[in-house]
Design a protein around this nucleic acid. Structure first.
Lengths: 288, 288
DNA sequence: CAGATACTGTTTATCTCCTACGCGTTTTAG
DNA sequence: CTAAAACGCGTAGGAGATAAACAGTATCTG
């Protein structure tokens, strides 16, 4: 790796050994860049671009985030963005880390289980606040400064638990994964409900959610398609257990031990974690 | 396939009864179509198109599935596909259901826990066999005949468990969600490893995995980027717990209670489910 | 201080997608 | 036999990402 023809932002500080190993996006994430020397002062900045992209995504969804529209939003030509961001993929990576900027703190000294629950909820809320985050490919989620804060919090919560780091990491990884999936499913179901209301109201596909009746969305039956399919197409002989189970089904029960999917999921997973911790002797046996 | 050639879009005149409620893609999924009447015999069929699309995705990933390339694969022009499939979105829906075609059966009479574990593994393997499935948007996963089979299996496993259908559904939903996320994470990590090996071997970005050394991929450290970031960028004051936890970290432990992420995840979640079932009195207390 | 140089945003152009629309052809119901 | 319906295709438009070459500007070097 010598300084040959590299018209690219391959900003290698002198004598760069290990820097090259990391994906460029991660370096950008940590603001690792050569100090500027010559040339006009940049009028545009990566931060500005990321902000505009996030505003766009908040307002119109991830699909609305195109280089052209982001450029328009910041008032430059599309190609100007490429001076500050390697490409669209990198922009998505930056957005993905920025989402985790405003994670709420978890009070020190919180009990491990309450702490993990708070952490879990915070992560889910993050996703529900910014649904477009859930549409990002997993490859866009890299260890940036903000995401690492989330990880640090989790380790903070598990501090009193007596377990080696790799086991804690496995637990946190499981929770992180769970949280992402739960939020994805929840949002998808929400989108389905919105669609349903739109169809019922005879409104066109693109109608923004803001013009719909929130109560109607809330009331939409998430199992409607499922039930219709079961009734209209599915043959009992091919799906015997399904029919047996639903022979008495009357829609989701109002007063159910399963409060809502998110709460249910968290409690089940944390029960599993608790069982693991007990088995490993990582927490006192008498804990409630 | 008791159904004869089922080609056309459901030609529902405006005042249609219940059929109109369902998304068109679901109807296509179940082969609900008007019987053919006049016109040339179709040379092409939806099944053919879906098969070609799946072969393409298997070989080159979801990104390679474009209408043009699928058309090329079946030997027709791009626009010919639109006679059999409403658009690309619908094609993805059809693919998503087709993936679940070859689910292995779960022997009747299997213990609930062993059964759920088998079910869970089968679902994960499905994803790992066809990673492109994990790249599909959730909106492409609709209740088709094959997917419903998976659901039926799950209810079959839970048959001996004494619980109302809605609670069973919550459990299955949780597992389904977990399974999807686990497979996604696993594949993403695999892709990262492949990338790492490619970079190490100095091969270009597009090099297919088949040309790489499987052993090297297996040996790649999934935490490499993470460790590098921690060492190079992260300040201990900002991530105190992380640094504390990893002060003694020496990479993932070989012999760990955490066998591998997938096994660990399944066992923790099933422990949680077991706790729930116990609490609800749905299984005998003495069960191991 | 005068290039030389590196860096900025822009212009232009290419390549790839998805798909609306309309044509000619083939089949079969009436 | 005839006309409606269904099939596959050609054209073309719009949107998207981004490579390449360009012109202006700030800074460094001699």
């Amino acid at each position: 790796m010598s300084n040959d023809t590299a018209p690219e932002p391959a900003q290698q500080p002198p004598g760069t050994g290990p820097t090259a190993e990391l994906p460029a996006a991660v370096q950008r994430l940590w603001g690792d860049a050569a100090p500027r020397r010559r040339g006009p002062k940049p009028a545009l900045s990566a931060a500005q671009i990321v902000q505009a992209a996030m505003d766009l995504a908040d307002a119109e969804g991830l699909a609305a985030v195109s280089m052209a529209r982001v450029a328009e939003a910041v008032g430059y030509t599309p190609m100007a963005l490429y001076r500050h961001v390697a490409g669209k993929d990198e922009l998505l990576v930056l957005m993905s880390d920025a989402v985790a900027r405003d994670l709420p703190d978890i009070p020190a000294g919180t009990d491990w289980r309450a702490g993990l629950e708070a952490w879990t909820r915070a992560q889910i809320d993050m996703g529900l606040d910014r649904p477009w985050f859930l549409d990002l490919p997993l490859s866009a989620v890299l260890p940036g400064p903000n995401r690492l804060r989330g990880l640090d919090q989790a380790f903070g919560v598990l501090r009193p638990v007596d377990l080696p780091a790799d086991e804690k990491l496995a637990i946190i990884g499981l929770l992180a994964q769970h949280v992402l999936g739960e939020a994805r499913v929840h949002i998808e179901s929400h989108r389905g409900a919105v669609q349903q209301v739109r169809r019922a109201a005879g409104l066109p596909e693109g109608t923004p959610e803001s013009e719909l009746d929130p109560a109607a969305i809330e009331a939409a039956d998430p199992y409607s398609d499922f039930e219709t399919v079961l009734a209209r197409y599915a043959e009992p002989t091919r799906y015997p257990h399904l029919f047996e189970a639903f022979s008495t089904w009357t829609g989701p029960v109002e007063v159910s031990p399963v409060a809502d999917d998110i709460t249910f999921g968290i409690s089940v997973v944390l029960d599993g974690v608790e069982a693991y911790l007990r088995r490993r002797g990582a927490i006192p046996d008498d804990e409630s």
